[in-house]
Design a protein around this nucleic acid. Structure first.
Lengths: 141, 141
DNA sequence: ACATACCTGACCAAAATGGTCAAGTTTAGA
DNA sequence: TCTAAACTTGACCATTTTGGTCAGGTATGT
């Protein structure tokens, strides 16, 4: 089990954005330079963030992206969903009447993965972008 | 983020084993048939479980595997470690003095992934094989 | 008009995943 | 002692995912 860099980058970029969008839109180029993430890759990520209404885009010179919501209302869940970073544990069909593995019972570990999914998602639902902003201030090296 | 099937299979196989090893060693062939996991793949997995002293092997006819510990003492952490199913969230070097990305500060989300790792590992440390056995009895379809 | 910045989609190399295959060794039991 | 069951080891491999790059656009402020 691992976290993919798409999810990590999305969060990093949004934290960066949140810290600089008070005055002007923030260009991906700036985020790219500050965070060390490829510009082309960032564009893919922000395309998804935009579709999910987490950010707004402003085209043209001096354009860029701005947050579309209050940092307090942007939960990690939202971000991860937007970039398809899903917590995927249960492979068996949830609604299937036959249970997993085509047998008459649930596979012996079915409930476990269900629980784990809930456990992790709870963590993501309770963390907002704002939490990260505060946290970051405290922990500069 | 997703769980790989190696980790899932390991847990499924051990639950199966724990339910049948009262009398005789359990052959991988039986586990393979009951759980629908490829025999060859199971062998790879059990080789690792054995190295980590979670199971013992008994060779020869009527041989098989048995648990090497009390189900209550086999935590999910142990199983996942054994089969290299790691929770890997932080990509940045933990001890690096320079921080992440070669910059002078930790990357803005460093602490977040650290927290998440702890959160998930706590879940795994608190679940033993025995918990799964009990749980399974209750939830047959 | 032109530079800046978003936008879109095709493409790709490398690694991880989820196995298979082959060729053993060991041991219980007939 | 022979043999079949079962563990053991390691090479191999196809597919998918990951983590991007590249090549074009389009929109818009100045």
């Amino acid at each position: 089990m691992k976290l993919t860099s798409k999810g990590r980058y999305a969060v990093m970029a949004l934290v960066d954005l949140a810290r600089f969008d008070n005055i002007n839109p923030v260009s991906l180029r700036d985020i790219s330079l500050r965070q060390g993430i490829s510009l082309d890759y960032l564009e893919q990520i922000f395309s998804k963030l935009k579709k999910n209404e987490i950010v707004k885009s402003i085209r043209g010179t001096q354009g860029g992206y701005v947050l579309n919501k209050n940092p307090n209302d942007i939960k990690l869940t939202n971000i991860f969903n937007a970039v398809d970073e899903k917590v995927k544990t249960v492979q068996c069909k949830k609604e299937s009447k036959k249970g997993c593995n085509g047998k008459a019972t649930k596979c012996v570990t079915h409930n476990l993965w269900d629980e784990l999914e809930v456990h992790i998602n709870t963590f993501f639902e309770n963390k907002s972008l704002k939490d990260l902003l505060n946290n970051n201030k405290e922990t500069r090296v």
